[in-house]
């Protein structure tokens, strides 16, 4: 089951570049939350702060607090522990090219020391079914490399890989922006299916996508959270002029 995320006074830097300013918001459990905004507005940096991926970039720095469920992300936990509880899907599909489809999906579990073959088989099957990829790959699980699939399949494989460890939160950083329309709609259907069980945070610069999949939407601009509200309100009656300008296409 998913858990909520509480973010308080989050600031982030890349070197001297202050990319996030005082972000405070609460992301509800078992819903999909979309983050929109023009390129460079800090929305990707924001999700990367949630699972401490931001700090893997040299020179990066974070202050403020993030709580995921009852876990304080920046206080008392190691980044490795945090990342094991949070699934992440990236803009470019990044399956492990030297591993089979099966090994890709089970990678996170094996990393946690999970060795029971029978249980692994079941989890791999369940995760691939959840990611709507099972029927396409079930005959080549151990024969084909993760890199031999098409782009859209690779991205669903990456989603299956993230789901296999049964995360409490799924972060998706523009998961469909490198994909064709058919693959994109498959990913969106998937998000729709998954959000009853997981808390999903999706970064997108496709506003229709946000409108289609998310209950709540946050609008970022120049490293600040301008507005955070129900998706319906953001797209029909935003309270901030800048949000309105953005969603009506006046800039960005």
């Amino acid at each position: 089951m998913g858990v909520g995320i509480e973010v308080k006074d989050l600031n982030a830097w890349y070197g001297a570049n202050h990319t996030l300013h005082d972000i405070t918001l609460n992301i509800p459990a078992n819903q999909c939350t979309a983050l929109i905004g023009p390129s460079g507005c800090g929305k990707s940096t924001f999700v990367r702060c949630l699972n401490r991926m931001h700090e893997t970039t040299p020179g990066a720095k974070v202050t403020g607090s993030v709580r995921i469920g009852d876990v304080d992300v920046y206080n008392g936990s190691s980044p490795v522990e945090i990342r094991r509880r949070i699934g992440m899907v990236f803009q470019r599909p990044n399956p492990f090219p030297t591993m089979s489809i099966y090994d890709n999906v089970s990678a996170g579990l094996r990393l946690n020391g999970f060795r029971n073959r029978k249980a692994l088989d079941e989890i791999v099957e369940r995760s691939l079914k959840q990611a709507a990829l099972w029927d396409e790959v079930k005959n080549d699980l151990k024969k084909k490399s993760g890199a031999s699939l098409s782009g859209g399949q690779q991205q669903r494989l990456c989603i299956a890989r993230a789901l296999a460890v049964d995360p409490e939160v799924m972060l998706m950083d523009e998961p469909a922006s490198a994909l064709d329309p058919v693959s994109t709609s498959k990913i969106e259907d998937l998000i729709f299916e998954l959000k009853s069980q997981y808390t999903i945070v999706i970064v997108t610069h496709n506003m229709q996508q946000a409108a289609r999949v998310a209950e709540r939407t946050g609008f970022f601009l120049n490293g600040r959270l301008v507005e955070f509200d129900s998706t319906h309100k953001i797209f029909t009656n935003p309270s901030d002029k800048r949000t309105e300008d953005y969603i009506t296409g006046r800039f960005g």
Partner: peptide, 18 residues
């Protein structure tokens, strides 16, 4: 090696060594 590969492993909770 592509950066995404490294990030995929780190995001799964792999240590730098893993």
């Amino acid at each position: 090696q592509p950066r995404g590969l490294r990030e995929a492993a780190l995001a799964l909770g792999a240590t730098r060594f893993e």
